[in-house]
């Protein structure tokens, strides 16, 4: 049997990016993180990334452990909490993490503005040329949409598929990423754009959802498709490149 595509995607975002994403999505206060809710969501996203075999940094697992630890400490009554050498007595167990998130967010915002400066600068020319010739990054992340937005959309489709699956006869199906790549490109043969949900309109099983999603990621990585989102947490559009 011919071996199928091995989709090897590296996730450039780190655990702090995922946490900030979840905080924004859940519209919760960064200074008062509902640790149980955020931990559960974090674990859900982490398992989805593992399901997709994405290459996630080891730090994601370290953060998972940290979140679990904070969660367990929050459950204990204050007078029974063990205080370790580094934390002061009575200190909120979330504090260290919150401090780290707040600081990282400031740098992330600065980086965003720096990117805008770069964009403006690309339109300004001097005798030496547009600038001193920096090559475009090869490791540009998937798209203008973050990987977490994609995983979020993927999660919704997966949940629907699971709900449907209960009422279906389980047939043995074999889908390969290569097949799905062909299928997606065929759907887009005379169109330039489709919405994310359309990709999964006729998809039945969970396995098929996973394979279809991997095919999409691979096409994005190969720069055949790109994804765009008009507003934060809005609908994702899949667009043909070139």
């Amino acid at each position: 049997m011919e071996s199928d595509y091995k989709v090897k995607l590296e996730v450039f975002e780190g655990p702090l990016d995922l946490l900030l994403y979840l905080i924004k999505k859940e519209e919760v206060d960064i200074y008062d993180i509902p640790i149980e809710r955020i931990t559960n969501q974090y674990m859900e996203y982490l398992s989805l990334m593992q399901l997709l075999n994405l290459e996630v940094a080891g730090e994601f697992l370290v953060m998972a452990a940290t979140l679990m630890y904070i969660k367990s400490r929050m459950l204990l009554p204050v007078d029974q909490q063990v205080t370790d050498a580094e934390t002061e007595e009575g200190e909120d167990p979330r504090w260290e993490l919150i401090r780290q998130l707040v600081e990282y967010k400031k740098f992330k915002d600065a980086a965003l503005q720096l990117g805008q400066r770069e964009e403006q600068q690309a339109n300004i020319f001097s005798r030496q040329g547009p600038d001193t010739g920096i090559e475009a990054d090869k490791d540009v992340p998937l798209a203008e949409v973050s990987i977490f937005d994609l995983i979020n959309a993927f999660n919704d489709v997966l949940k629907k598929a699971s709900a449907r699956e209960d009422f279906r006869e389980i047939m043995e199906e074999r889908f390969t990423v290569s097949d799905k790549i062909e299928e997606i490109l065929y759907t887009l043969r005379d169109r330039s754009e489709m919405v994310f949900g359309e990709l999964f309109a006729s998809v039945g099983s969970r396995a098929e959802v996973v394979v279809t999603f991997l095919a999409l990621l691979e096409l994005i990585r190969l720069k055949r498709l790109k994804v765009r989102q008009a507003e934060a947490f809005g609908e994702i559009h899949v667009i043909k490149v070139g």
Partner: peptide
């Protein structure tokens, strides 16, 4: 477009 990736921009910042 010669733009740097978000990880590069963050690290630079």
């Amino acid at each position: 477009p010669h733009r740097l990736s978000p990880p590069s921009l963050e690290t630079l910042s």
